[in-house]
């Protein structure tokens, strides 16, 4: 085990997979010479050369096409979007091409590509740069959608993503890049998709999160524990595939659930999980499922409005209390 930052864990995963498989290559804006906008890809150009670490123009359609086409032709690209906000430019390549080619071909072709980059909200980046859009991809059949919370998961899930034969949407959180954690030394450490993990045990209420939403849940659980309320915190790790077994098992014990996410509330991951809880465990619930989510507005710039638009652990605390009322 080595302790490292989330962004270093991502860099390590890319490095190890590039060392393991010569078909893996990296492309994106300023990933090489500039050493990465967030320094995630620092040193990789020097290590692997320009054929395997490709600096692209600001052409997201081009990046997505480079990745999709080369994956269809047998390579295993890892394409970086400088942030997920800019992937919107590439939506057609992503949704109509990468996500569908396996199905449209009757399984005759694979598209083993990873699209990765920072997502998440905050730091006053305002409407066009501060948003979380995982449900756009989760909505599209064909994508696996991965959102790690810890450095170990960032490492293991990214390695799994690179080895997976399907297109994977890998959303990092810029606000987690600096967080520390232990990462296994094993170069074959992978984390299986569709296996949620219980980050904290509890009997009173189930808190479901992913990415930085888990942090909201853990902090809320801490606060509530001081008041004698024991929450169980589940980190989904992957939105698609979605591990409902772990969620349902937990709510059968707690009979209450709060889902915490940064993305907008309307037609979101939380909506889906709530619906599935009702489908799978309706008679187990002692209270309506609560959702803590981003305000349904384009992200405002002003600090006070931004604070009001972004969900926090105190919103989770309040939601838990509503389920117990």
């Amino acid at each position: 085990m080595a302790t490292m930052r989330y962004l270093q864990a991502i860099r390590l995963a890319i490095t190890e997979e590039m060392e393991r498989d010569p078909n893996v290559f990296l492309c994106g804006e300023d990933v090489g010479q500039y050493q990465g906008t967030y320094r995630v890809t620092e040193g990789l150009l020097q290590k692997f050369g320009a054929m395997r670490v490709v600096d692209t123009p600001i052409s997201e359609i081009g990046i997505a096409g480079l990745a999709t086409g080369s994956a269809m032709a047998g390579l295993r690209p890892v394409a970086e979007f400088m942030t997920w906000s800019f992937a919107l430019e590439a939506m057609d390549q992503l949704v109509n091409h990468a996500a569908k080619i396996t199905y449209m071909s009757g399984g005759r072709i694979h598209c083993p590509v990873v699209f990765r980059g920072p997502a998440g909200v905050g730091t006053q980046l305002s409407a066009q740069h501060s948003q979380s859009m995982e449900s756009w991809y989760a909505h599209t059949p064909g994508f696996k959608v991965v959102m790690p919370f810890t450095p170990a998961d960032a490492h293991g899930l990214l390695k799994q993503a690179i080895r997976d034969d399907s297109p994977v949407i890998f959303m990092e959180h810029a606000g987690l890049y600096g967080t520390h954690g232990e990462v296994p030394d094993d170069p074959d450490h992978v984390v299986e998709f569709g296996k949620a993990v219980v980050r904290r045990k509890g009997k009173d209420c189930t808190l479901v999160g992913y990415s930085r939403g888990v942090l909201m849940c853990l902090r809320a659980a801490e606060t509530l524990a001081a008041e004698g309320i024991e929450c169980e915190v589940i980190d989904l790790r992957t939105i698609v595939p979605l591990d409902m077994d772990t969620v349902v098992e937990s709510v059968c014990k707690t009979h209450r659930a709060v889902i915490a996410q940064e993305e907008w509330r309307n037609v979101s991951v939380g909506s889906e999980i709530a619906a599935r809880i009702y489908e799978m465990a309706f008679d187990q619930m002692d209270a309506p499922v609560e959702r803590v989510a981003g305000a349904d507005v384009p992200m405002p710039y002003a600090k006070n409005l931004e604070r009001a638009a972004i969900p926090t652990d105190s919103d989770v605390v309040a939601a838990v209390k509503r389920t117990l009322a």
Binding site: S126, A127, Q128, Y301
Partner: peptide
Amino acid sequence: AELMGRATGCAGGKGGSMH
């Protein structure tokens, strides 16, 4: 005022520097 996120900014504080 917009850059400082104030109500008197040219976008009422909602846009910020880029908007």
